[in-house]
Design a protein around this nucleic acid. Structure first.
Lengths: 84, 84, 84, 84
DNA sequence: ACGTTTGCGCTTTAGC
DNA sequence: GCTAAAGCGCAAACGT
């Protein structure tokens, strides 16, 4: 009884998650389609991915970190900080 | 100018993809939420994930894989694959 | 000068860590090589990884986990259980 | 016979890999120890990790990529390229 | 100690 | 088909 209810709840969780996973798969397909379309127009897909990565970084957080990073970079004589 | 048109198209691609990535992130959050909810009811999340993986596999492939695993476990003298 | 001494110590830390990271990378390469060799003899690498995961688990924990997985699989009306 | 030989070889592979995994674990422990030591001298561990990540990038490859990346970044009006 | 967040390894997929 | 990269899950680490 409580046991059966438990089974039902568990099954419901699985179904919800599997539905979400399906949606996620659809989105991944969409992304792939867009990149394929861009590629067919001559755009460089790896470079586009690189830009997407860069844009994904929260700009604020990046700047916060760089103060400390530059400090250590210069301190250890690794050459021009943020040169890349 | 063809160049500007190219920029516009590229920008549009980025925006479409970033929108899709946002959606995907939302879905991942949803999945995590469902698992958290299940956990709060006493379900074991890693075990649930294992079941989800099994359900995602084609039954035939799953049986093949398990047969191999059992074979290797037996071959190397590990304790009872069955009790697994 | 204390400042320079600090720089030197920091640099030393970086070098020690980077050396360790190199070693770790070498080990990962070795693991990959062994698996590749095994594969070339006809062994199934994913199945081997599954066995390695099982062997890495404390036997008692392993039994617990498998019991839960079987329980969930049964509860949700799936066929033949097993795996990790 | 060939069967037994197969078991032996498989077992040998597992043992080799498990030995390597042990070594890797030891290295990870060493890295953690070094960072702990650095922290105890007042160095900022997250920043150190950031520097390590930066140093890990092959400088050449980075520069190669940046030509294309900058092209796309400027093309899409995302603001100063490589500002970080 | 807990929850959140970051890094690490594995898996799978994309590109060559 | 193989090598290289990205996504994902897991675990340790950091801050509260």
């Amino acid at each position: 009884m409580g046991h059966n209810a438990s089974h039902e709840r568990l099954t419901a969780y699985f179904e919800r998650i599997e539905r979400l996973i399906e949606e996620r798969k659809g989105i991944n397909d969409d992304i792939r389609d867009v990149l394929t379309e861009a590629k067919s127009e001559g755009f460089d897909v790896p470079a586009m991915r690189a830009v997407l990565r860069q844009r994904a970084m929260a700009p604020e957080k990046r700047m916060e970190q760089f103060a400390l990073i530059d400090l250590y970079v210069t301190a250890t004589g690794m050459g021009a900080p943020r040169e890349a």
